[in-house]
Design a binder for these strands. Structure first.
Lengths: 159, 159
DNA sequence: AGTTAATACATTGCGCGCAATTAATGTGTG
DNA sequence: CACACATTAATTGCGCGCAATGTATTAACT
């Protein structure tokens, strides 16, 4: 995706420096890299950390609901949850009302991790820098882009 | 990474809705998903598309330089380039001056892809929506975050 | 010249993301 | 009840990202 920042002359749309998406992509990779040393302390990957965040707040949730919150599917979550189960941080039970659904819970060890995790957000805030306004705006623009990309809608384009 | 958007009350830093990084992560995943149908036409993945963008502009480049531009290493690029070579879009020669360095070129078929690729940026712009100002700002904030995350610098934190 | 160090790339291994398919359970309808 | 259909997860396969390690080539130094 390109933006025109030199409207007076023809801009190559297929140039890296004009690609918003490449900036997004690179920033996300850098962000996940920056999380790694912090999350190594908890023996978690970034996606696993996201899952734990949900489970800390909403124990007993299903894989489906977890997937809706994280925008991930069972192809990603099932093996990830098995790894968390192998680390004994999460239990993967089954609902009694509906044998199809997994009921996810944090174990005692998983609950203890929450204490250690409390310092992570502030440490990351230091790493990314920027003002709170910058961060709020970045979040808002990402959420807006996400919403558009997920609803097949198209703006004033040719249709 | 969390932001405080309700300063009057205690905000859980480990809540998904307060995580800038989760928004970034989800937006990037959505963006790559949105590229997929467009790039399927060119039989390219998004990272392969990025590589082609660089090679269209700078034929004869090395793996190292390519990696610096895309912020990727040989562990990612070597197999990716082999796949592009298998599709006969790219050739992986060797420098005559230094037998270690790979000299990357686009094949004739690869050059032809450039024509097809020209419509991709505008199609993506339609999908993400938002004003040009929004997009420019999103790019700027991502670039800023990337720069901070890649230079071990820390802002006014405890150190 | 000979040893050491640095450089460029390749390889291995692991954990995602996700499309596509399958399996098991549940629901609804005649 | 029988059958079609939907729903929930699991499975398979592939392509990244990246850490860690290996290998071949070049550079540097004495």
């Amino acid at each position: 995706m390109s933006i025109k920042n030199a409207p007076e002359q023809a801009v190559n749309p297929l140039a890296l420096e004009n690609q918003v998406c490449f900036s997004l992509y690179s920033a996300t990779n850098a962000m996940i890299r920056a999380y790694r040393p912090l999350l190594d302390e908890l023996s978690l990957t970034y996606p696993q950390y996201l899952v734990m965040m949900v489970l800390w707040k909403e124990p007993g949730i299903s894989v489906k609901t977890l997937g809706e919150k994280l925008h991930l599917d069972s192809g990603t979550l099932t093996p990830l949850l098995k790894r968390l189960e192998a680390k004994e941080l999460v239990s993967r039970g089954r609902s009694e009302l509906d044998e199809r659904v997994r009921v996810l819970h944090v174990t005692e060890a998983g609950r203890e991790l929450h204490q250690q995790a409390l310092t992570v957000p502030e440490q990351m805030r230091c790493k990314v820098g920027g003002t709170l306004e910058d961060l709020a705006q970045l979040k808002q623009l990402c959420d807006q882009a996400f919403a558009m990309l997920n609803s097949g809608e198209a703006t004033s384009c040719e249709m």
